[in-house]
Design a protein around this nucleic acid. Structure first.
Lengths: 152, 152
DNA sequence: GTGGTTGATGATAATACTTATCATTAACCA
DNA sequence: TGGTTAATGATAAGTATTATCATCAACCAC
């Protein structure tokens, strides 16, 4: 199921980066975690909890490098804080629950086509896009919370 | 063309906020500026340049209040820094030039419909969304810069 | 394998953006 | 107009991120 550490080192290496222990551990975390989107702080705490000796500065550096190397992609989800996710080739967009923070992914070729069309019409060469839908998920607790807030 | 200050005060007042001088000036700035999207720092510098005595803390507070009052809307545009724009009722999305930072707006009912459909299928009650397209605009200088960057 | 070079690490200082604190001041309504 | 209540501005504090730099480890040539 999960790639062994050696493949992992290979991925890092072929991005022109030295396959160091911190880098291997960070990449592995993204490959193994159930929580797909992680902030620098999330990664830091998770690795500390696993008994790793790692500095926060290294996390930030490596996340930036991995993003440039296209191993990870970065999002902001309308908050000042960056989160990263594994880049698995297939582009997708996000559906975010405003109550519990859960993130679902989706991909709609028709929307993608329309985006391309809009960019072309305005003389833009489209490079990338970010589409996030915000709402309340089907969890009853979230719906209750949403009702409470609107009464608030 | 532009609303007089009194209407301006009216808008603020009917949002349940006192029509203070700093608030009137900030709202007026958004109504009169050609640069549609402004950060807290942009607003601060602009008002200082106009000879206003205003504190940065006030700017942050007022921008947050105006957003809650739906006079302004906030965006992050994939950077850790918030920018605000006047809320004129009509929802729209953004097309951002990655070279010069220019922002164009667009609105596509078909994309909106598809978004609604996606949310429904997954049991989400859609509240809002953010769609930003990033690319290179038709300005020759931007296209030259883009080519230079891709050569690295 | 080993060693030298080069780049990576981690501690920490610095920066950028934003929010909280609090004494003073101004807006609003009776 | 005066009193109440909320807003302001200076500044401290908080949070997220980047820069600095001495030490250390990965990699390639041998």
């Amino acid at each position: 199921m999960h790639k062994p550490a050696s493949d992992n080192a290979q991925d890092i290496h072929s991005s022109g980066l030295k396959a160091t222990w911190p880098r291997i551990r960070i990449l592995r975390l993204f490959q193994q975690t159930t929580q797909r989107h992680l902030s620098a702080e999330d990664v830091y705490r998770s690795l500390l909890a696993d008994g790793e000796e790692i500095g926060l500065a290294t996390i930030y550096r490596v996340l930036t490098q991995f993003e440039q190397a296209r191993l990870l992609t970065r999002h902001y989800f309308e908050s000042g804080k960056a989160v990263y996710e594994l880049n698995e080739g297939q582009h997708h967009d996000h559906l975010v629950c405003m109550m519990c923070g859960r993130v679902e992914e989706f991909c709609d070729p028709e929307i993608e086509r329309l985006q391309q069309q809009i960019a072309e019409r305005r003389g833009f060469e489209l490079r990338e896009h970010a589409l996030s839908l915000y709402g309340v998920c089907s969890n009853p607790a979230c719906q209750a919370k949403a009702r409470a807030e609107s009464r608030g």
